[in-house]
């Protein structure tokens, strides 16, 4: 049986705490530069495009498309059978790693550029992880 406690739990730092507070509350937060409008991830208190410290945190739409992935076939105690490790492109631009869930883990179902939406699941008492599921599956 899949045992999620076998996964290393992310440990927030002062610069990323707001992101993890938000996932726990069911929201995906990104940051935007108030000088050059660049939207970026992962969190940091300055813009990686222009070095401005004038940046704000905002709620992302949670919509994304599937950029690329692998299906891991080696056994992992936290998963039942082969599972996807994916990178998605958020509607706002940045990319992030995730697992595609609520979807058959096959190349036929996991189509590049398919539409996805974020879902959150608790990994520990303090940390909820963002995952992505197909738009069409639950609509």
């Amino acid at each position: 049986m899949a045992d999620k406690s076998k996964l290393p739990v992310p440990q927030p730092t002062p610069e990323t705490q707001h992101f993890w507070d938000a996932t726990k509350a069911g929201e995906l937060k990104l940051q935007k530069c108030e000088d050059c409008s660049h939207i970026y991830f992962p969190p940091r208190p300055f813009c990686p495009k222009c070095a401005s410290k004038s940046v704000k945190v905002f709620s992302a739409s949670g919509e994304a498309t599937l950029y690329s992935y692998v299906i891991n076939h080696r056994p992992h105690p936290a998963f039942d059978g082969p599972y996807s490790i994916a990178v998605v492109t958020l509607k706002e631009g940045p990319r992030m790693m995730t697992n595609i869930i609520n979807c058959e883990q096959t190349p036929e179902r996991l189509r590049l550029d398919m539409s996805l939406r974020v879902v959150f699941e608790d990994l520990s008492q303090d940390i909820a992880l963002p995952y992505f599921e197909p738009m069409e599956a639950s609509s």
Partner: peptide
Amino acid sequence: GSPSSLPGQFEGAYGGM
């Protein structure tokens, strides 16, 4: 890697081997 590094926080918990 450390679970507080950026890779640890944002890639580490997705079952990478």
